Simulated scan of single mutants.
Amino acid sequence: MPIVRLSGTIEGKNDPNRETRARMLYQLFASGWDIYNSNGDQRITLSNIEKKVVESDAFVFMPGATLEDLFKAVSIFVGYQTLDEYLFGKATVILNSDRTWDPMFGLLDRLRELGTIKQDYRGFLLQAGSPESVVGSLERVHEEGLPDVERKKIMTCDTDSYELEYSGDLLANICVFCSASLRDPSYLEEGYELGRMLAAGGYGCVSGAGTTGVMGEVVRGSVEAGGWTGGSNVPHIIELEGLPKGLTSFWLKPDIYTRMEVMIENSDAFVVFPGGAGTVQEMLALLIFRQMGSRLMAQKTIIIFNRPLPDGGGFWDPLVQMLAPWAQSGFFQVAESLSEVMRIIGTQVSK
């Protein structure tokens, strides 16, 4: 029988989502699905999420969206975008009957308007208003499949991890989370400038090791300024995007979750540059680690570069608003210019 993974947790007999979950369980079981996490008592972490994806045939997210739920849903969408073979043909349905998922959908809408998300997420993260309609959506994907993400592989991955010698002194390593698809010239110029400023300031630059978009420009800026530049990527994304030249250190990982983990481990601070769904995923991972008190995030600064937009507001306004329920004071800082980003790094980050 096919297996569906159900998200969410139930907090005792008075939990308002208990009845909805019971209806969902009945609908799924009656329709021929076996159910993982039926009681809402399983936790998914960076270390086990890939295994959970592999062993499941579909995913259903329940009302009462938590930070972990948002991370998992966005991660699945990123997997669809990057042609993750373990997600091929698997449906994801979000039961949004309490509207707690609206901030995430609003953020994805805004990123699509700004051009950092090319695919229409609605074809991959299907919304439902009732448990009965969830089952209908699962069946529709089973019959019709998922949309084409319209991406093609450009190479085969024949690289491995490596470490080259670097003779310079580093004050700290700064990880830049950004988009590999954003091609607006002004963003590309600022990406290059950030990489150059980090190298000039004596900071190493960690990235997702992409060749295109802002990610490619950040790497190029650091490399051309003589900086130490480290990065991590996975085989199926390398086959889509290639690898940049000039990296001092490269860490090949089997999946996007261990990729994030090694980037976090090798960084002393983080700059969340304008980006797409992958950048949102990375910011959510940072916040989850920060909430957990993980050693990986101990004393590490998070800076959201909320670049002002021509029509007013900032690029990441919807992200900051979405994170508000979980972002305790000091969890992250917001900067509106590269000079402010560098000022925060200079005053708060050191090895």
Rank of each mutant, 00 (worst) to 15 (best):
V74W: 00
L70P: 00
P244T: 07
T156S: 10
G210M: 06
W251E: 11
D98Y: 10
A199D: 07
K351Q: 12
L138K: 03
S179M: 09
V141D: 02
N306Y: 02
E165H: 09
V206M: 10
G89A: 11
D69R: 14
E224I: 03
C178A: 14
I117A: 06
D69S: 15
A58R: 04
L247H: 02
G221W: 04
I256W: 00
L87V: 08
V334S: 05
E143S: 12
Q348C: 05
M283V: 12
S249G: 04
R295P: 08
I303L: 08
K245F: 13
T20K: 13
F250P: 08
G246D: 10
G275S: 11
F88M: 05
F331W: 05
Y257T: 03
T9S: 12
L247E: 07
T258Y: 09
T212S: 09
A277D: 15
A199Y: 04
D268N: 15
R196C: 01
F59N: 07
Y166V: 02
R220Y: 03
G106L: 06
F250L: 07
R140M: 11
P147E: 11
A172I: 07
D148C: 06
I94V: 15
G346M: 01
N233Q: 10
Q42F: 13
V218D: 04
A324F: 07
L125Y: 06
T301C: 03
P318E: 08
V141M: 08
V223Y: 10
K152T: 13
G276N: 05
Q27G: 02
G129E: 14
V271A: 08
D268M: 09
S97M: 09
L126Q: 04
T100G: 00
L243Q: 02
T212G: 00
G89F: 05
C157H: 12
L319M: 14
S267P: 04
D169E: 15
A285C: 06
E139T: 14
E165K: 08
W251Q: 12
S329K: 13
E340K: 08
F71Y: 13
P235T: 03
S56W: 04
E336R: 12
P16R: 15
G246A: 04
A180F: 13
R307M: 11
S38W: 14
L296E: 14
L114P: 03
T100L: 01
G32I: 09
Q299Y: 09
I10L: 13
G231H: 11
M283H: 03
F29H: 14
G227W: 04
E261G: 01
G213A: 05
W326D: 08
N14K: 14
E265P: 00
G313H: 11
T347Q: 15
L70A: 12
K72C: 02
R5E: 04
G168R: 01
A180P: 00
G168Q: 05
